[in-house]
Nucleic acid binder design. Structure first.
Lengths: 337, 337
DNA sequence: TCTAAGAATTGGAACGCTCCAAATGTGACA
DNA sequence: TGTCACATTTGGAGCGTTCCAATTCTTAGA
């Protein structure tokens, strides 16, 4: 499977390799005559530039890497839509890496990108910062979904705590008090969502109803979290899952147990993914402008790459509540205070 | 962001670059003493091998590329699970490419991989073969999901026509006659599914009820396809969508129009993705062993890479029907023949 | 016709690594 | 102590590009 090289194209076209290089990069100062000669020779040979060699010589790959925490979560597909559009517009190619929903997998993906010398990296949904800090010494990095303020990388996110507060406010306004939360573990934004929930509960004087089940942003953990909550002494009338995926898991389990949503239990997710929007799910959730977040992440990367920005930036968007059919007032048999 | 080079590591360790190279690759014939010396120097410097240079010299990247047709379709996430596991086991790193659900996007992704000189490529859910044939001259390629028999690439798939037949048989056994299909366009396996549907309908003597609405494997096309079918003169009592994603779209639209599934209309998907399995969806569908398909695709690639196989292979698995709650006998008010 | 300035082209040195053949070390054995 | 076989280590030539300085061509103006 030997690939034709620039050398061969040069010979066939009867010019120097330097000229071929110029033509391949679309340099301006090349006569139309030779340009055509070179292009024809390249075409006949099926020549394809070798990015590896090109980068070795030029120190640029014109490629950006995107690490996706979990391919099963549609949230990331939506972020990638924005990333892809912005990258296309800026003439950068994109490579994706699978974070395998684990910190080690994430670190591996980042490492692979660095070894391929991509120009910059977007980490979407990071589970931890160590690999990122390490990598930031080698390439500019943008982290999507984490609220942290970092000195070594840019961050892009929505205000997770504010989103959680919107959820609690909404549920309280419907009359709920026993509002429980299914945690997202170390998932991006999860700690902030949990803390936002706790703090909003306190503000409403509902401290004693604070209840958090463990979880990790997956469908499975949503189900186990919901099961855990059902077993408790004070069954909650509303469950706030840390993301849509785990909300779906909870939805399934509750339905399986013969409970009706929202009649028996109200359920809220976070992210407003396509899952939540499905008509027969109708999940009340927090909307994140995923597409915009994706676009912004590339813009920040390009600022560092092209404009030479070096100080780090935080880009925060306000979330908003999307009310669908999974929330309603608590069942009537709730004991009056 | 200058990276330390092998040269610098060699100087610091007081050895030659050749020795550093040996250590980095884990070669056997290196004394423990110098190995440690080199590793320490590398660690202190934060050295990271440059894959580009490495490949330029060795003609191997130890990296496989996977082109995913549509990140929004969980089917691909499931295939990647298998691919990733097999690649990990074989010590190959994985890079993903976004096909953007378009033939051009797919071709771009393949081209990027070739320019990065990956060792092999898996194309999952290809929309067309031209880019693949072209690329197969430069690297071994495995196509997942297409039934075609190709001379230039290996293919892996389930028997789509057989799957479609299972669906029709199931619906007919429930008493349905007006069974319509929502097409998948040029999506991988779609033509076979449509043809399987037609042929099964004919075998049951239901020729005159054959009805196909256009679609392209997306949720949106599932909705529009269902809408189109509802408007026809003879409203179908069962709809067979070409994949789960479009089935979900149809599900949503039908529910929106006030119809109940399966009481008014039975609905069947294809792929048995996580979407179909959700309890409140309960979509009857055709199961594909996605994980196994993913694993097999890497195995085929490695056979070409490591064992030097050159003739192409087809790997076909039998699909099976998963009956859930979206199918039932047609409504009683159906006019008797 | 000559000259200068600018346009177009080219040779050859990197880029960071692997690979090969050759050189050096080491230890066992006679 | 001298040999020999084998284990280690090393120099240096690529790998396919880009980039820079230098060279050659053109063309306009005098």
């Amino acid at each position: 499977m030997a690939q034709p090289t620039m050398q061969q194209v040069a010979e066939r076209a009867g010019v120097s390799t330097a000229l071929v290089s110029l033509v391949m990069r679309g340099a301006p100062n090349v006569s139309d005559y030779r340009r055509r000669l070179v292009l024809e020779a390249a075409d006949e040979l099926g020549y394809r530039p070798n990015v590896l060699a090109r980068n070795l010589a030029s120190r640029r790959t014109n490629t950006l890497g995107v690490v996706l925490n979990d391919l099963h979560n549609p949230y990331f597909a939506e972020v990638v839509d924005g990333i892809q559009a912005a990258a296309d517009a800026a003439q950068h190619r994109l490579l994706l890496g699978n974070g395998k929903h684990s910190l080690a997998g994430e670190a591996d993906a980042v490492e692979t990108f660095l070894q391929f010398r991509v120009d910059g990296i977007v980490v979407a949904g990071s589970l931890g910062l160590e690999p990122i800090e390490q990598a930031s010494r080698s390439a500019p990095i943008v982290v999507v979904g984490r609220t942290d303020v970092l000195s070594y990388a840019d961050t892009i996110n929505t205000d997770d705590a504010a989103g959680a507060r919107l959820v609690v406010d909404h549920l309280v306004s419907l009359g709920h008090e026993r509002i429980a939360h299914i945690d997202g573990g170390t998932g991006a934004g999860a700690p902030e969502r949990a803390e936002g929930y706790r703090s909003a509960m306190r503000d409403h004087g509902l401290d004693r109803h604070i209840r958090v089940a463990a979880g990790d942003f997956t469908e499975a953990s949503g189900a186990s979290g919901a099961a855990e909550l059902l077993e408790g002494p004070e069954r909650p009338t509303a469950i706030f899952a840390s993301n849509d995926l785990s909300a779906i898991g909870a939805f399934d389990l509750l339905t399986d147990r013969g409970m009706s949503i929202p009649d028996d239990v109200s359920l809220v997710g976070f992210d407003n993914t396509s899952l939540a929007a499905m008509a027969h799910v109708g999940l009340t959730t927090i909307n994140q402008p995923t597409y915009d977040l994706g676009v912004a992440s590339i813009e920040l990367l390009l600022e560092r790459l092209d404009d030479g920005r070096t100080e780090s930036t935080q880009f925060v968007r306000a979330p908003d509540l999307i009310v669908r059919t999974s929330t309603a007032p608590p069942p009537a048999q709730e004991p009056a205070p």
